[in-house]
Amino acid sequence: MFLEYSTVTACFKLEEYHTAKIAFETGASLVPEDKRFSEWIQKCDYCIAEENGELPTPSLAATPTSAPKTDDAPKDVEQVNNASSEEATREPTKPKYRHEVYQKPEEVVVTIFAKGIPAENVSVNYGEQILSVTIDVPGEEAYTFQPRLFGKIIPAKCKYVILSTKIEIRLAKVEPVHWTSLEFSKNSLVVRSSIVSSG
């Protein structure tokens, strides 16, 4: 299942450029006539190069056709950075719903404690390494939980159930390795590789 377009652009805004690029490339192969995907792929390439300190400015400047698109990319990056700095200055708000995580070798179970939520107000989407949960109750601010996951999952085998007191989401792991946390971090790969090498 390919993620919705808005969910994929959210990956970009969360500065998960590698994940976003893979999703955009999948979208481009499924809908080749949609030019938005190729534009977003270029933006991802730009941001990945910027993160790695490998900005290919001379070659981009030499290609007139790609110049307008590279002009767009820094603005998008700037907007994302401005949004991040604004969020940093705000006081941290307590999440509307509490969640817990436990795991087995083959799956991770995420429980969101949301009482009496109708099924039609809950949206759950899965990507290769993304979980996206939205609870949208009329008259209330929508709750969104969208972590980039520690490891890859099999979207077709993932499932969820809405109970009277909670939403239980079961994520099928690609590999039966122990996740040290639900969310991916820069140190996750190091911890994961040490688990594999130690046997």
Rank of each mutant, 00 (worst) to 15 (best):
V77Q: 09
Y97S: 06
L14C: 05
A62D: 04
I22C: 02
P68L: 04
Q42R: 11
R98C: 01
E100G: 02
C44V: 01
I48P: 03
E100M: 08
S85R: 14
L60H: 06
V101I: 03
N81I: 08
E91K: 15
G27Y: 10
K21V: 05
H99G: 05
A88V: 05
D45F: 04
P95N: 03
H18E: 13
L60Y: 04
P32L: 08
E33G: 13
T57H: 02
A88N: 09
E87V: 01
E100N: 01
T63F: 01
I22Y: 07
Y46V: 06
I48M: 09
K96V: 11
D72S: 12
N81Q: 13
K43D: 06
K69E: 03
A67G: 05
D45Y: 07
Q103W: 05
S84A: 13
T89A: 13
P68Y: 03
E33W: 12
T19K: 09
T70R: 06
E87G: 12
Q103R: 06
T89P: 03
E78L: 15
K21T: 07
A73P: 00
D34F: 15
Y102N: 14
T65K: 02
R98W: 08
R98G: 00
L60T: 07
S38G: 13
I22H: 08
K43A: 11
N81K: 12
E33V: 12
E16R: 10
T93A: 14
V31D: 15
K69A: 08
P32G: 01
P64C: 02
N81T: 10
T93F: 12
D34E: 14
E50I: 02
T89M: 14
F24W: 09
E25Y: 02
A83L: 09
P74L: 09
E51D: 10
T89R: 13
K69Y: 07
P64I: 00
D72R: 11
N52Q: 15
G27E: 06
T19I: 05
Q42A: 12
E51F: 00
V101C: 06
A20Q: 00
P68F: 08
T70Q: 05
H18W: 02
E16T: 07
P105Y: 06
A23I: 02
T93S: 15
K69L: 10
A73C: 01
P74G: 01
S38P: 10
T63Q: 07
F37Y: 15
K96S: 08
P68H: 03
K104V: 07
T57Y: 08
C44H: 02
E100D: 10
E33P: 07
N81P: 04
E54L: 04
E15G: 00
R36W: 12
D72Q: 13
K43E: 01
T65H: 05
A28P: 11
D76F: 13
I22N: 05
A61F: 08
S29A: 15
P68R: 01
R98F: 10
T93D: 13
P32N: 09
P56E: 04
K21F: 00
W40A: 09
Y97L: 07
Q79V: 07
L14Q: 15
K35P: 14
P74I: 10
F37W: 15
N82H: 14
T70W: 07
H18D: 12
E100H: 03
